[in-house]
Each structure stands twice: as structure tokens, then as C-alpha cells.
């Protein structure tokens, strides 16, 4: 990338109000802001030259300071089950991954929000690489825009590398672009943001967004969750759930709980009982997830038969529970396996 390009500002990833501010600053007519967002988010252009309803002079003027700012993926890996893992370079020298999961009736893209993560969960590969940087709104959305299946993606999940609520401003801007009429105009029902439950940012999210929320629960007991997820010391899951119960959720907004199943650790009858107690009174769904063992972690996955029993027991007690299909394990694209640690070291 030339020095010239580096210093220019990316238009892709800016919200309507940010583009309006640029339009004003550049002395372009007010309506140019809507025209630009249309080119960016509806007509999928790759260069400012393609914005043909702006005058040539305006385009030349924009090109002095701005670029569209799309970044192609550096590498794609494909699993035997059709899952694809895309590697992107971000910032100065950081690497992130996005996973594309096609199914018969839908196609989900799992995007990253940070290069690395600060939360240090015991069972997670991303956590093991430490934190490198927050992704910009451009870098979050580029994972969607710059894959060949872009227009096939039906659902977006913020469950890749990083903790979305530790980068709440950029995550909210990306959601605004995805769901606004002037942006991609997706229904918020197609988007799920997953978090370990950083309460202040979660409250902001619930206030400002109608997208679905998924909380990484993994253990209903305070002392046991603390051993696996340091966040429990600061924002305990019990408090997270109390706050969700208090929130005024949008009519269509769904809350779900992710629960990775660890053999003998969080899959006992005691855990079922406590889950029922904890989630009682909350309209929600629990997603059970198979654990894919990671190096240096003293945890094993629960056998499939027990996962089914666990699901049935929770459902019988009124907690709607499903088992998430495991995808892309052979290319380390499955839940908790995304990591660019080797590249961070280089």
C-alpha cells in the first residue's frame, strides 16, 4: 500500500451522519451524502470514480482525501463441510479471521470485532493470543463486503475473534450501517451479537440496537464460572441476567445463551437445576455447543449422548434448548478456535 493510500480515509464503514459531515466539510450539496451511502452500501462500488451521479469535480475532490477502503482477504481455507475461513490483514500488522457457514436454507457469516481479545477465557484460542487492537467499523464490515459470497450471506453473527462489547462504539456503527434504510437495510433479526456480558456496554447495546443478543454463559455457578472466565469477577453472569430481565427488549429482539459443554465440568444435573433457576422468567433460548479441545487447556468436550440428555432436561423444564451443529472443525473455524497467534509472533 502506498503512503498516499495509507493516509487517505476510508469511506466504506462510515455512517450517514459521518458522511454528511464530510459532505459539508467538502462543500458538496447535502443530498450527496445519501448518494454516497447508496453507492457504498447498495451498489457495492469499488472506487470513487464509479459514483457517477456526483459531478466529476466532486469525485476528484473526494479522491484527494478519501478512498473506498476495501481490503481483500489474504487467504481462504475451505472445510470438507463447506465452511470457509477467511484471513484478513487489519491495522498495521494484525490478522483476523471470519468464518462463512453455508447451509441449505441460509448462510451465516461469523465476524471478528478485535484482533485478539483481552478477556482471557480459559477455553478459547483467541484469548490465548492476547489483545492486539480494536477493529474499526470499516474492518468489521469489510469481512462481509470483501468475501465472494457477500450477497449470499443471510445472517451475520458477531462471534469471531474478540469481545464485541469491548469495542462497542465501532460495533454499534457497523450495526447501524447493516440495519439502516440508507445502509444495507437488513432486518435486525438477521444479526446476532455475542458477548461475555460487559454490563455497561450491554446496556448501551440494548438501548441502541434491536439486533439479537447472545450471552456466553458456560456455567451458572459464580465460583465455577470465575475459574474459566475472569470477567465473572467484575460483571457476574447473575447480574448480567438481572440487567437483561430489566431491559425493555424490542418486540422481535431475542436473547440467547451460549453454553459450551465441558465433560464433567458444567454438564451435570446440578448445572441443569441452576440453569433453570438462573434463566427462569426470561424468554430466551440456550444453544449448547460442542467443545473442540485446544492445546494446553485441561478441558474436554462432553460426549454427544450427554449433550442430548442435557438439552432434553433443560427443554423439559421449560428452557428452550438447541444443540449447535459443529462446523469447520478441520480448518479451525469452529467456535473458540479462531486464532492468528502464529502470525502475531512474526
Amino acid at each position: 500500500m502506498s503512503q498516499d493510500i495509507k493516509e487517505k480515509i476510508s469511506l466504506y464503514g462510515l455512517t450517514l451522519s459521518e458522511i454528511s459531515a464530510i459532505v459539508k466539510e467538502e462543500g458538496l450539496p447535502n443530498f450527496a451524502a445519501k448518494q454516497i451511502t447508496e453507492w457504498l452500501y447498495k451498489k457495492d462500488i469499488d472506487s470513487i470514480d464509479e459514483m457517477t451521479n456526483l459531478s466529476l469535480k466532486s469525485r476528484e475532490q473526494l479522491k484527494q482525501k478519501y478512498i473506498i477502503g476495501l481490503t481483500p482477504s489474504m487467504k481462504v481455507m475451505e472445510s470438507i463441510d463447506g465452511t470457509k475461513k477467511y484471513l484478513f490483514k487489519t491495522g498495521t500488522n494484525n490478522f483476523i479471521e471470519a468464518a462463512y457457514l453455508p447451509e441449505t436454507d441460509r448462510a451465516t457469516l461469523c465476524v471478528s470485532t478485535q484482533a485478539g481479545c483481552k478477556m482471557g477465557c480459559l477455553f478459547c484460542m483467541t484469548g490465548k493470543q492476547g489483545f492486539q487492537a480494536n477493529l474499526t467499523t470499516n474492518e468489521i464490515l469489510n469481512q462481509l463486503r470483501s468475501i465472494s459470497e457477500f450477497r449470499n450471506v443471510s445472517n451475520l453473527v458477531y462471534m469471531g475473534m474478540g469481545e464485541p462489547f469491548d469495542n462497542i462504539d465501532n460495533v454499534l456503527s457497523s450495526l447501524e450501517i447493516i440495519t439502516s434504510e440508507w445502509g444495507y437495510a437488513w432486518s435486525p433479526k438477521r444479526v446476532t451479537v455475542s458477548s461475555i456480558g460487559i454490563i455497561p456496554a450491554m446496556q448501551t447495546f440494548l438501548e441502541k440496537s434491536n439486533c439479537h443478543l447472545a450471552i456466553s454463559l458456560h456455567n451458572p455457578f459464580d465460583d465455577e464460572r470465575r475459574q474459566m472466565m475472569p470477567i465473572q469477577n467484575v460483571y457476574p453472569i447473575q447480574k448480567v441476567i438481572t440487567e437483561i430481565k430489566k431491559a425493555d427488549l424490542g418486540r422481535q429482539q431475542r436473547v440467547s445463551f451460549e453454553y459450551i459443554m465441558f465433560d464433567g465440568i458444567n454438564d451435570t444435573d446440578r448445572h441443569i437445576k441452576e440453569m433453570v433457576k438462573l434463566l427462569g422468567g426470561l424468554k430466551c433460548r440456550v444453544n449448547l455447543i460442542r467443545f473442540h479441545a485446544i492445546p494446553g487447556t485441561p478441558l474436554n468436550g462432553t460426549p454427544d449422548a450427554r449433550i442430548i440428555e442435557f438439552r432434553n432436561a433443560l427443554t423439559a423444564k421449560g428452557v428452550f434448548t438447541t444443540v449447535r451443529a459443529s462446523r469447520g472443525q478441520d480448518i479451525q473455524a469452529a467456535c473458540g478456535l479462531l486464532s492468528t497467534k502464529e502470525m502475531v509472533k512474526k
Binding site: K118, L122, D166, P230, I231, V234, P298
Partner: peptide, 15 residues
């Protein structure tokens, strides 16, 4: 890796 059970390790992270 040196044999401390993970349950005996409690962490606070300055995120």
C-alpha cells in the same frame, strides 16, 4: 502445564 489445577487459578484482568 506445571500441574496446578485450573480451578486453583483465579484471575482478574485489566481489560
Amino acid at each position: 502445564s506445571k500441574g496446578i489445577p485450573y480451578g486453583n487459578i483465579i484471575s482478574e484482568i485489566y481489560f
